[in-house]
């Protein structure tokens, strides 16, 4: 059942700009460094002996912001596909469970974001090579900075999806989303327990893995709560 729903959901996101956004996010993040290094490459290279490490760190400054922004826009798009003509009633009158409908939506979003993260890795690597940075390419660090934020953003994804699906007024998820983006932007100032801080991989113990594990854990919890809320509610 879930496989069929996924196929249908991937068909429904055609021509809606989903794939373009999936590409634009990581491209934008790396493009900012293209500008940065284009303008003051010599200065930046002087900042650290570890040219690759410093470069990846620069790239990852904007990763959380792009990721949270992507989550907000994609979840909102995703629900607008069904909201536009209230296709929920048609979808749920099919022989499918509401649990699988919800899971399918989340899976599509998670896959798109995963592709984004993968593209981010490729673009980072690609531009780094073009810059002809000195030293060994730190693949471990590259992987970490591309995929850790992806896992750490799970709670935001689960929360946004929940709000977007159950809200009658799409202004609500957008408002929460905008607030989330602002919070992500000021991650340095936030306490460790705030989910919007997690994609930045910063914490008191200086151990990014904590954010990843917390993200997946709390994300799953929020996902389950949202799903049961969706199942409980009458369809509009």
């Amino acid at each position: 059942m879930i496989k069929n729903l996924l196929c249908a959901d991937f068909l429904k996101i055609k021509r809606k700009g989903f794939w373009f956004l999936t590409f634009l996010g990581p491209f934008g993040v790396v493009a900012l460094q293209m500008v940065n290094y284009g303008v003051r490459k010599d200065y930046l290279l002087q900042q650290s002996n570890d040219e690759w490490g410093y470069y990846i760190l620069n790239v990852s400054t904007f990763t959380p912001l792009a990721l949270v922004l992507g989550v907000v826009i994609l979840t909102s798009f995703m629900t607008s596909v069904e909201n536009e003509t209230n296709a929920w009633k048609q979808l749920i009158a099919f022989p499918v469970t509401k649990i699988s409908v919800y899971l399918s939506k989340l899976t599509v979003l998670a896959l798109l974001l995963f592709i984004s993260s993968f593209l981010l890795m490729l673009f980072t690597l690609g531009f780094g090579m073009i810059l002809e940075l000195q030293g060994q390419i730190p693949y471990g660090k590259l992987l970490k900075h591309s995929f850790y934020p992806y896992f750490a953003v799970t709670p935001v994804l689960a929360l946004q999806l929940w709000i977007a699906i159950v809200s009658k007024n799409q202004g609500v998820p957008i408002a929460v989303g905008v607030l989330g983006v602002i919070l992500t932007y000021s991650a340095y100032l936030l306490p460790d327990w705030m989910i919007w801080k997690w994609p930045s991989l910063i914490n008191e113990w200086d151990e990014p893995l904590i954010n990843v594990l917390l993200g997946v854990g709390v994300g799953s919890l929020l996902y389950i709560i949202g799903m049961f809320d969706f199942v409980r509610r009458d369809v509009k």
Partner: peptide, 24 residues
């Protein structure tokens, strides 16, 4: 149910294809 639900950005065929996939 009530007003017809459809996906305006898809063609008639694609709309039914989305249902077909679910209904097997």
């Amino acid at each position: 149910v009530e007003n017809p639900s459809y996906y305006p950005h898809l063609t008639a065929y694609e709309n039914l294809e989305a249902s077909r996939k679910i209904l097997e």
